[in-house]
Design a protein around this nucleic acid. Structure first.
Length: 231
DNA sequence: AACCGAGTCAACCGCGCGGAC
DNA sequence: CGTCCGCGCGGTTGACTCGGT
């Protein structure tokens, strides 16, 4: 018997692999990834399978550009929690931590570059700052985390609404310039965040505790129609 | 038409945490 | 109580796309 240890496959997923993974997850659930990886016949690690599922195949995921509301929410939540992408993602239905992380990095890099070339003091002349906006809207978010709000969708709507009104007429340009000092907000970056751990605000389709996901969800197979497609 | 740089996004890696034994 | 193992998270990388020159 030749005991050649087969190399685990890496790199982009094929349509066939996606299909295999989806079938296996349908059968066994999305918790035991090592097991799923084994029984699926995919020559992939459990980790890789989980990542593919969470970031691409999971039903309910949105793909495409962030809406202005989502952008605002990301800014606010990042100011509050820092790089806790998974936590931020739970507040954004259909978005993954990876997506948000990528989005943030892309924009931060861009804005950092812009700032480098634009260090003129006049740029900070505005008396209205993003942080002051944030202080206005923060209670809304905190009330969601802390209070036992029950209706998720109405919570989202409220946050979006309040952020939108506050951010109205406030250029994203300036926002990005000001977001580097979240400590100014008096936010406890140690992030104990006791309140949010029990929050019921998370997207029902995205929470990591969705072992009870309804496998009959038709979206899955809509998605399977165009696996791996880029936008 | 070819080249180049910036932007985007999927995927990998390493680490830490928590549960099982 | 200590060790092992699986999972989740955050950071990073690299391939691909697109727009400008």
């Amino acid at each position: 018997m030749v005991t050649v240890r087969e190399e685990m496959r890496k790199g982009p997923w094929t349509e066939q692999e996606d299909l295999q993974l989806v079938c296996t997850v349908r059968l066994f659930g999305d918790r035991r990834w090592d097991f799923v990886a084994k029984v699926s016949g995919l020559n992939r690690t459990g980790k890789s399978c989980r990542l593919r599922w969470v970031n691409y195949l999971h039903p309910g995921l949105k793909h495409g550009r962030m809406s202005p509301q989502e952008e605002c929410l990301i800014i606010q939540l990042h100011a509050r929690w820092g790089n806790r992408w998974s936590r931020i993602a739970r507040r954004l239905p259909g978005r993954t931590d990876n997506e948000i992380k990528n989005y943030w990095r892309t924009h931060m890099r861009k804005k950092a570059q812009e700032r480098k070339t634009d260090m003129s003091p006049s740029s900070s002349s505005s008396s209205l700052t993003y942080q002051s906006c944030l202080l206005d809207t923060l209670p809304t978010i905190i009330s969601i985390d802390g209070g036992d709000t029950h209706d998720d969708s109405s919570c989202i709507a409220r946050v979006f609404k309040s952020t939108q009104s506050v951010m109205d007429g406030y250029p994203m340009e300036q926002i990005w310039r000001e977001i580097e000092a979240p400590s100014l907000l008096g936010i406890d970056e140690a992030g104990k965040d006791k309140t949010c751990s029990s929050s019921s605000f998370a997207c029902p389709l995205l929470t990591s505790t969705t072992s009870t996901w309804d496998y009959s969800c038709p979206e899955l197979f809509c998605k399977m129609g165009n696996p791996g497609t880029r936008m």
